[in-house]
Amino acid sequence: TEYKLVVVGAGGVGKSALTIQLIQNHFVDEYDPTIEDSYRKQVVIDGETCLLDILDTAGQEEYSAMRDQYMRTGEGFLCVFAINNTKSFEDIHQYREQIKRVKDSDDVPMVLVGNKCDLAARTVESRQAQDLARSYGIPYIETSAKTRQGVEDAFYTLVREIRQH
């Protein structure tokens, strides 16, 4: 089974770092803004072998026109913010609204991801993020692309959301 996953969120929150940590098991430290990259990885989730087709997208506003296209083809979405960047957390709402509009559905598989949880300088409390996820009816997972904490959990949870859909 193949799953088309799309990673969305503001610029600099760590979308590529999360994806590369999942696929290649290493942490990319330097920031190089993405336009669009796709990665494929075969994994076993709950005993089922599946192929993850992951689209890593641009957070930069100037590429926002490309969003409709990949939102149409994606089956599930990782909505990523950084726990030390309140603005990126506030941006999640717009991504969710755009996904709902493009998919013409209120019920699209999504996982809210709070990345950079290895950093002490948190400005978005776990509780705020949990409340937001609960209001959307989606899971919330904290990750660190640096330490790998929660990385597999985030992507695998999204696959489970798609399966249950």
Rank of each mutant, 00 (worst) to 15 (best):
T1F: 08
T1V: 09
E2G: 04
Y3E: 02
Y3I: 11
K4D: 04
L5A: 04
L5T: 03
V6H: 08
V6K: 03
V6I: 13
V7N: 01
V7R: 01
V7P: 01
V8T: 03
V8P: 00
V8S: 02
G9E: 00
G9P: 00
G9C: 01
A10V: 06
A10T: 07
G11C: 13
G11Y: 09
G12S: 11
G12K: 08
V13C: 15
V13W: 00
G14Q: 01
K15P: 00
K15Q: 01
S16H: 00
S16Q: 01
A17K: 03
A17L: 01
A17E: 00
A17P: 01
L18A: 11
T19D: 02
T19I: 09
Q21V: 04
Q21I: 04
Q21W: 06
L22G: 10
I23M: 14
I23H: 11
I23Q: 07
I23G: 15
Q24W: 05
Q24L: 06
Q24P: 01
N25L: 06
N25R: 12
H26I: 13
H26N: 10
F27A: 02
F27T: 02
F27C: 03
F27H: 04
F27G: 01
F27M: 04
V28A: 06
V28E: 12
V28H: 05
D29S: 05
E30N: 04
E30H: 03
E30C: 06
Y31F: 04
D32V: 03
D32A: 03
D32E: 09
T34N: 00
T34G: 00
I35K: 01
I35V: 05
E36M: 01
E36S: 02
D37N: 01
D37C: 00
S38K: 03
S38C: 07
S38I: 07
Y39L: 01
R40C: 07
R40M: 13
R40F: 05
K41F: 09
Q42C: 08
Q42M: 08
V43Q: 06
V44C: 10
V44H: 08
I45H: 05
I45C: 10
D46Q: 07
G47F: 06
G47L: 06
G47N: 08
G47D: 08
E48N: 12
T49W: 07
T49G: 08
T49E: 07
C50R: 05
C50Y: 12
L51T: 14
L51F: 08
L51I: 15
L51R: 04
L51C: 10
D53F: 00
D53C: 02
I54P: 00
I54M: 11
L55E: 15
D56H: 00
D56F: 00
T57P: 02
T57M: 08
A58M: 10
A58N: 13
A58Q: 06
A58H: 04
A58V: 03
A58C: 06
G59W: 03
G59F: 02
G59T: 03
G59V: 03
Q60F: 15
Q60G: 15
Q60R: 15
Q60I: 15
E61A: 14
E61G: 14
E62N: 15
E62Y: 15
E62C: 14
Y63S: 13
Y63V: 13
S64F: 11
A65Q: 13
A65T: 12
M66F: 14
M66P: 13
M66N: 12
R67L: 15
D68Q: 06
D68S: 07
D68Y: 04
Q69I: 06
Q69E: 13
M71Y: 12
M71V: 09
R72W: 07
R72P: 11
T73E: 15
T73D: 15
T73S: 14
T73W: 14
G74Q: 10
E75D: 14
E75S: 10
G76D: 01
G76M: 13
G76Y: 07
G76R: 02
F77H: 03
F77S: 01
F77T: 02
L78D: 01
L78R: 02
C79G: 03
V80P: 02
V80N: 03
V80Y: 02
F81C: 08
F81A: 07
A82P: 04
A82M: 11
A82Q: 15
I83F: 15
I83D: 10
I83Y: 13
I83K: 12
N84E: 14
N84K: 07
N84H: 14
T86A: 12
T86E: 12
K87L: 10
K87E: 08
K87G: 11
K87I: 07
S88C: 09
S88N: 06
F89L: 13
E90V: 09
E90F: 09
E90S: 15
E90L: 11
D91Y: 12
D91R: 15
D91E: 11
D91G: 10
Q94M: 14
Q94K: 15
Y95E: 07
Y95G: 05
R96G: 07
E97H: 07
E97P: 03
E97A: 11
Q98W: 15
Q98N: 13
I99D: 02
K100G: 05
K100I: 06
K100D: 05
K100E: 05
R101W: 04
R101H: 08
V102R: 06
V102C: 12
V102Y: 13
V102M: 13
K103E: 04
K103I: 09
D104P: 10
D104A: 12
S105L: 11
S105G: 11
S105D: 06
D106G: 13
D106F: 13
D106V: 12
D107N: 13
V108H: 03
M110E: 01
M110A: 02
M110V: 05
V111H: 02
V111N: 00
V113F: 01
V113C: 08
V113Y: 02
V113Q: 01
G114S: 08
G114F: 02
N115Y: 02
N115R: 01
N115I: 03
N115D: 04
N115P: 01
K116M: 15
K116R: 15
K116L: 15
C117M: 08
C117N: 09
C117P: 02
L119N: 15
A120S: 09
A120K: 08
A121H: 10
A121E: 10
A121M: 09
R122T: 13
T123V: 10
T123L: 09
T123P: 10
V124W: 13
V124S: 11
E125S: 12
E125W: 07
E125D: 10
E125F: 07
S126L: 08
S126H: 11
R127E: 08
Q128R: 11
Q130K: 11
Q130I: 08
D131S: 08
D131R: 08
D131M: 08
L132I: 08
L132K: 06
L132G: 04
A133Q: 04
A133F: 05
R134S: 09
R134K: 13
S135A: 10
S135I: 06
S135E: 11
Y136F: 13
Y136G: 04
Y136L: 14
Y136S: 06
G137Q: 05
G137P: 02
I138V: 07
P139T: 09
P139L: 06
Y140M: 05
Y140S: 02
I141N: 04
I141S: 04
I141A: 06
E142V: 05
T143V: 14
T143A: 13
S144E: 14
A145Q: 01
K146E: 14
K146P: 13
T147V: 08
T147P: 04
T147C: 12
T147I: 09
T147G: 13
R148M: 15
Q149V: 07
Q149L: 08
G150A: 10
V151K: 03
V151I: 14
E152A: 09
D153M: 05
D153Q: 08
A154Y: 01
A154F: 03
A154P: 10
F155S: 01
Y156S: 14
T157E: 11
T157I: 07
T157A: 12
L158G: 01
L158P: 01
V159L: 13
V159Q: 02
V159I: 14
R160D: 09
I162T: 06
R163N: 10
H165T: 11
H165Y: 09
